[in-house]
Design a binder for these strands. Structure first.
Lengths: 398, 398
DNA sequence: CACATTAGTTCATGACTCGGACTATATGAT
DNA sequence: ATCATATAGTCCGAGTCATGAACTAATGTG
């Protein structure tokens, strides 16, 4: 039922099959050419040709022949750890971060600079981010890793490489992709932090459901605001104007107080960090965690209350989107021991018969977004190796 | 970023290009071969070959040459109205319906049998439906329309051709697709009524947004229950277990009463037909409409109250899914004059800054689902003409 | 040591699309 | 009328790419 917009040509056929083979190698390495042929439906000869292209592009490598039960031993194929790497960056309210990830998904560099960026001059923060990016790029170069591009996680709405609006950072119309691109010489993409955190959790979080990786889930990131990332079929769901997934502004109290967004009774207004800290009568999230560990009743009540509100929002998410799992990330991951029971109870109180999705806790915490940003760069190459080959060829001849 | 699972082969290339060409003809007919070539990116010679296949399959027809500004006049191509047709069926709480649609989307037969099917023996209702289907098939045959298949709209959850659960009809585990397939000799699909209504509204409702047809919207169908159909990028969004879009069970009153689904404070519990009628103190929807027209305050208050609850649910839908439009269908379309102002106000009260989607009223009313069902059959052929050619060829030789 | 078994390569074949040359049919200027 | 120009559509040779069968390679088994 998909609307096709591009003609299928020979080059496209090859591109598609290159992606098919590389995807199979990425999913199940090590594999032999014969296994790839069997699983993809391509013939052995086709796979051989495709693989040799991918090897000479440096995306795949052969390792020592592994003995099979009988017959000629298979030469194992796997992603080349030195083939290419992606640079992930993140601007957030109280830190800047950078991560370099290689083709296999392994982090090869990671650095976080903590500093409150609220109220600072935008150009200064951008300059700091470029410096962080340059340092990361130098590290990649010293490891012999060619960077394929960069992706910046931003706590707000982004359109066409520009930051449109970041409620908690106060930025408006910042051409961040261009700035970082000029500063680093890389192709730079921008994406919402909550969406990238969801992808990071999917690729690197180590979650499994019935032995398969997560593909349809919702990630809740509780930073200063409350964000949501919806992943359907392994891809971020963005909606018509890239505004989808704003879990923080789902209505959980129809007669509730006005929220910063202009609405009323939003989840973020009722269960955001500000509200929790005020109810628990503590100053910082670290204090809150300590108070919960100490069994302080006000703190526990505040967290449980937030958990109940979160459950109401998630109940609506579940009835509307039907995900297989919910992943609690950011601050909610830290608070999970005192929050998730209330959330689970509230979900089941508000959803009834539907079999509830699994409630998982993030394994990456606040690294999820940068990791996801670096991952998107690398995944783009895996999803379309032909484009990468073309770029390589252009560089060689031009 | 799509995960490719099938090898691209020559046959697949042709299949893809056949779909590309047919899709272009369907979207903008009449068109010339040259125009199709220009818009799709295929060469004129390729388009000629593809078109001649589609013509000999009876899917496309040539009409009289239309003079262009200069040069040889173009031969116009358009979908063949007699090429193929789809049978749409619907089982609902208080009626059965059938529609036959030709390739161009024109309805060629339409029939509704009103009767309350609650509490009736399932086999009897199925037998009635098969009779309705047979009558429709005879009408198609007498018009020279070969039916490509059928699709049944069901007010509940369907999985793999079986009705799993229909809360308001009381069915459980009914192999409806097989039964209707045997009764009619057609390939039969099953699909949720709310989803089909959304598709029907998209294809045949005549809605436009900035001159383009709707592609990202939510359709609200207020029948006995409240259903929702989410369409993203022109396709129904089903979620992980085909349970997505259950708008009727979004939480609009966290401390509200228990709903039939087992949850609490669901939209359907707070603003369903039962609740509205009770508050308005009238017996039927027809009475309610009359009361509203007469200016009865209790009726107007009941409808406005439902509108406010609907607005709360839609506010969450908007923040989560970011659609371009909301279409009010079924009973909500009838009640729109007294409901939509309250709904719009409630939406803006609960969403704040986000630019709100357009609030549209259904043009098809309760025909939307059958029309959509017939449309899916025809659209499947348009989306994959190669499969249809293969079936034709198999019938000719076998 | 023959034989079965599996991995991977080679090469002729065939199914496509491409692109340019060609034919067909119109308008407008001379 | 006639010729230049423009556009639509067909034809056919060339190029690309997957296929499939035959081949070579490398192992274990009786």
């Amino acid at each position: 039922m998909t609307v096709r917009t591009e003609p299928a040509q020979h080059a496209g056929m090859r591109a598609s099959n290159l992606a098919l083979v590389l995807g199979e190698v990425a999913r199940t390495s090590p594999v032999s050419r014969a296994q790839v042929a069997a699983r993809t439906g391509l013939t052995k000869s086709s796979v051989s040709g495709l693989v040799s292209d991918l090897i000479s592009a440096g995306l795949i490598q052969e390792s020592a022949p592994a003995a099979t039960e009988r017959g000629r031993p298979a030469t194992a194929l796997s992603l080349a750890p030195g083939g290419i790497a992606g640079l992930g960056l993140e601007v957030n309210v109280d830190y800047l971060a950078a991560t370099v990830t290689d083709l296999t998904g392994k982090p090869r560099y990671h650095h976080v600079v903590r500093r409150d960026n609220r109220g600072r001059d935008v150009d200064e923060v951008v300059a700091d981010l470029i410096e962080v990016a340059r340092t990361a790029a130098r590290s990649a170069a010293s490891q012999g890793l060619p960077l394929s591009g960069a992706c910046v996680a931003v706590p707000g709405l982004t359109v066409d490489g520009a930051v449109v609006r970041t409620p908690n950072l106060g930025w408006d119309r910042v051409d961040l992709a261009d700035a970082v691109g000029e500063g680093t010489g890389l192709e730079v993409d921008l994406e919402n932090e909550a969406n990238l955190a969801a992808l990071g959790e999917m690729w690197f979080g180590g979650h499994e459901l019935d032995g398969a990786p997560l593909r349809d889930f919702v990630h809740v990131s509780g930073e200063i605001g409350i964000g949501g990332g919806i992943v359907i079929g392994g891809e971020v769901f963005r909606g018509a104007h890239a505004g989808a997934g704003e879990l923080g502004h789902v209505v959980v109290a129809p007669d509730g107080p006005r929220c910063g967004c202009g609405g009323h009774g939003c989840l973020e207004r009722m269960a955001g960090q500000q509200e929790i800290l005020a109810r628990a009568q503590v100053a910082t999230m670290a204090d809150l965690t300590r108070a919960c560990e100490a069994g302080d009743q006000a703190a526990l009540d505040a967290v449980a209350g937030a958990g109940r509100h979160l459950g109401v929002a998630l109940a609506s998410v579940i009835t509307l989107l039907d995900p297989t799992a919910i992943v609690l990330g950011g601050a909610f991951a830290t608070l999970a021991p005192w929050l998730s029971a209330a959330t689970a109870a509230s979900i089941s109180h508000h959803t009834g018969a539907v079999e509830p999705p699994r409630l998982l806790v993030s394994g990456l915490g606040s690294d999820a977004a940068v990791r996801g940003a670096a991952g998107t760069v690398v995944r783009r190459v895996i999803a379309d190796p032909a484009a990468h080959l073309a770029r390589q060829a252009a560089r060689a001849t031009g």
